[in-house]
């Protein structure tokens, strides 16, 4: 596997080696390697059906996987449970957002801090103010039911809810999915801003250009394998990325 020097020399938050995930007999992910450091945005881009969502689900403990996963310096055993990972500061904003539709924006946010509350922290109101600072739109809608929000607001709420847990690693699954260009721009601006807080961000995107613009490092996932990786500026200029998306490149293989 190629060893690209990372741009930052920060503490490694997550290191994955030889990750494999299989649905029955079909391997959805094959030998994926990945490194994420503190304060870094790493993006995984790739066409539809390449296994991006599977990657996040397996990292979050929603799917069983084999391979080596080292999170915050601790090798992860086989019993990876979502709840434990949440406690250790890993959060996932899923593709479907998974909001609590019949609850207010405020209650959705509050539940984002459920595990912190359960482990004795009582700072949820302050965290909520920080989230509102980041997403003023959510403060305007704080009493509204989540199910009545627009697509962009839903994505903001999903991200805000994840931030309520004060994560060390924030994983975002296609935050641009189904959103209009202007809103995508806004969301990506906020993601770039989050970087300043020191949280490591793993951004899975189909929208390659937008993702590469804010990311430090990128991986291209194609049919379950990492086909390309490198600093995002390099990837953005690589014609093979376009080929991967539009199926122009395989004919010579």
């Amino acid at each position: 596997m190629s060893k690209h020097p990372h741009l930052h020399d920060h503490e490694v938050i997550l290191e994955v080696k030889n990750l494999r995930v299989a649905y029955g007999k079909v391997e959805a992910l094959h030998d994926v390697d990945l490194t994420i450091r503190r304060g870094e945005i790493v993006t995984v881009i790739g066409p539809n059906g390449a296994g991006k969502t599977t990657l996040l689900a397996s990292l979050m403990g929603l799917l069983p996987a084999t391979g080596e996963i080292v999170y915050m310096g601790h090798a992860q055993g086989r019993e990876r449970e979502v709840e434990t990972l949440v406690r250790q500061g890993m959060t996932l904003v899923p593709e479907k957002r998974e909001l609590f539709a019949e609850m207010s924006v405020e209650d959705n946010l509050l539940l984002g801090a459920f595990d912190r509350y359960r482990s004795g922290h009582r700072d949820q109101m302050e965290t909520m103010d920080e989230v509102f600072e980041l997403f003023p739109r959510l403060e305007e809608r704080r009493a509204q039911l989540a199910g009545t929000l627009s697509g962009g607001e839903r994505q903001m709420l999903a991200m805000g809810r994840a931030l309520m847990a004060k994560p060390k690693l924030l994983m975002l699954d296609e935050p641009s999915l189904g959103l209009a260009p202007l809103i995508i721009k806004e969301i990506f601006r906020i993601i770039a801003e989050l970087k300043q807080t020191g949280v490591a961000i793993l951004l899975v995107e189909q929208n390659a250009r937008a993702a590469l613009q804010i990311a430090d490092y990128g991986y291209v996932l194609e049919t379950g394998e990492v086909s390309l990786s490198g600093p995002s500026a390099e990837l953005a200029a690589d014609p093979r990325v376009i080929e991967a998306y539009l199926g122009l490149g395989h004919k010579t293989r």
Partner: peptide, 15 residues
Amino acid sequence: VQRDPKVLEAYLGGV
């Protein structure tokens, strides 16, 4: 369709 810039845009996205 493959050469349509709008399609390229949709697949790769643009900001």
